[in-house]
Design a binder for these strands. Structure first.
Lengths: 359, 359
DNA sequence: CTGTTAGCGCATTCAG
DNA sequence: CTGAATGCGCTAACAG
């Protein structure tokens, strides 16, 4: 007794009063059903939902009543397919855990939500490794835009992004040759500001501690250059050691890094850390060893974490306006997704050096 | 010169050799195009992509070659619509910023990715407020499951979730009457363990500091009950004050809370904090005021944050296996999404009291 | 194992 | 302002 094909040309006796749907189990009500209940055409219901201004008050009221009584929730995957706009934005970050990007992602999320876009998450790990795997997964959702948070795509990844013809915003450290749009800050400028501050306070032997990834190494080099340049312009001998700590930065990582630094360059008197967690570790280790902070060693953090102002001694650190980055990145994506041009494809939100007690 | 309807029955002269598509600008290549290039039927191409075992090696090879040469990325929104499976899981958390849920969300993310599911993010704020707004947005994507991370849905929200007939996992504190599945730990058990530890060490005047939301208040009450019970069984007078600090917990919040506690109950000798950040604040404030930790005041944190073992004094805290929670939640969702039953709909991952220096 | 047919639930397009 | 027709790109269900 073979079942007939799905719904063949079967103008036979109407066995099922409603047009005999198949699997009305998952997915809930459809727009057509809603429209039927409201007593309007599906198209009017669609408009009442998406462009209320285009329908008469009467229809609007009927549809809204039907929504209220049924709890109808539109199927956005169908809508996305039909309209070719998913209202989805993909965000790629190295890792969720212990990441310094959270405040940025948070504000990105909120700003996007306000424009009725949702966030799809991707994680890259910190490497420039095979990101094409998960990039494909994201691209397959046909997001209306993509935000890279402190992530540098591989050449292959960049190609995929280009092929997908998506609005892309790179955030955090600004990169030299952006794929599309960039919102962030200049680590060179920050390096110079920190170097200048420290040199002015008489320090001559420095250290830098960054994560164990390419981006951090570039920051270390920028800081080293700034220190060298400052020494030269002052005609004073300076020295600097570059250390690395596991990413994401931890107190333990900071403590261990300080030990290594002091082993390599015992008279180090100032350290610039790529995160406040690392800096907290440095302070902790220094205290444990009876080294005065900032008396014997000055410590500068990065990020102005929530705890930085309130620990003792309070951390001197570099603050970047993560919220602004998230917000502006969202703006860039939304504008482009709606077909408008974005005037400033490269936005530098700047930074500020917050001088507190540790330096 | 009215344009003809979109593509009406127009068997006229074939003007465009390929079947005259409309807007081949966004969205990239289609499966049919891929199939054509590979020289197979669309359905074979689909199978080669999604169920390679069902096609002959010859077809598989052809399709894979075509994918490699074109960079084809399947459109999952179309696939989702057709198959009624989005391979999307929605995760709701109070906030991304400074949240204690990150390690859990991280492992949830990874575990889901391994089963080829992606994470759609939702934020609720800590309140039990109008979550139905963004719940609708999530449900509209027709996710295959939903994970609530430390979030209690409102009655309205719970109704929507029920109506959506989704697999739902509530995580973190286990709730008394779950919507569907639960993975987490028992705050009552934790309260008892901490109370017992503290009582055994001779403490009699306690404080509890939690966030300013319902869930935290329940934890505070559980701790108070455990303390009272412990005092009664020992026949010793005990007292406890309940304080609250802004969520998410910060060092500043902890410092301020300690001040209030000491103002209310000067002889407080043991404090249980609902997060390690708060505990760090307490330690900081105590040190700033010359109060010895743990000599004069013992402090117990919660969460075993990355810094807790490495600060001085090292934090005594309660560890929960966040990774396990994320992993198991993912398992629950995936199993149900694939139509299998989940044997343990309620999973307690337990906890451990990590005794270090502060208590 | 392979191909054909018929939609998934919605929005775009155009004619009223 | 409203509605009917059409198909977004893919897969389920069948028949070979």
């Amino acid at each position: 007794m073979a079942r007939p094909p799905r719904k063949p040309a079967d103008p036979g006796p109407a066995e099922t009063p409603p047009p005999g749907r198949r699997h009305r189990s998952r997915g809930g009500m459809t727009l057509s059903e809603l429209a039927q209940i409201a007593g309007v055409s599906p198209m009017s219901a669609s408009r009442a939902l998406n462009a209320p201004a285009l329908v008469s008050p009467a229809i609007l009221a009927k549809v809204q009543a039907a929504v209220a009584s049924t709890g109808y929730v539109a199927n956005r995957v169908a809508g996305g397919l039909a309209s070719r706009r998913s209202r989805l934005v993909a965000a790629v970050l190295p890792s969720l855990a212990g990441s310094v990007f959270e405040p940025m992602v948070q504000s990105l999320f909120v700003a996007l939500a306000q424009s009725d876009y949702q966030l799809l998450l991707g994680q890259s790990g910190y490497g420039v490794q095979q990101d094409h795997r998960f990039l494909e997964a994201l691209i397959g959702r046909r997001p209306d835009g993509l935000v890279l948070c402190g992530v540098v795509p591989s050449a292959e990844g960049a190609r995929q992004l280009a092929a997908a013809r998506l609005p892309v915003v790179e955030t955090w450290d600004m990169v030299a040759s952006p794929i599309d749009m960039v919102v962030g800050f200049s680590h060179e400028s920050i390096a110079r500001a920190v170097a200048e501050h420290l040199l002015r306070h008489g320090h001559r032997q420095f250290a830098f501690v960054g994560g164990d990834h390419e981006r951090a190494r570039r920051r270390g080099k920028a800081f080293a250059s700034a220190i060298q340049a400052g020494g030269k312009s002052r005609n004073e001998p300076v020295s600097i050691v570059l250390e690395t700590a596991p990413t994401p930065g931890t107190v333990r990582g900071g403590r261990e890094a300080l030990r290594r630094i002091l082993a390599r360059q015992p008279k180090t008197s100032a350290v610039f850390c790529s995160s406040d967690m690392l800096a907290l570790g440095m302070v902790t280790e220094a205290q444990a060893r009876g080294i005065a902070v900032p008396g014997q060693i000055a410590i500068v953090g990065f990020g102005d974490a929530s705890f930085s102002a309130d620990i003792r001694p309070a951390l001197t650190t570099v603050r970047v306006d993560s919220e602004a980055i998230g917000r502006k990145a969202a703006h860039c994506i939304v504008e482009r997704a709606e077909g408008r041009e974005v005037a400033n494809a490269v936005v530098d939100v700047g930074f500020s050096l917050i001088v507190r007690e540790t330096a």
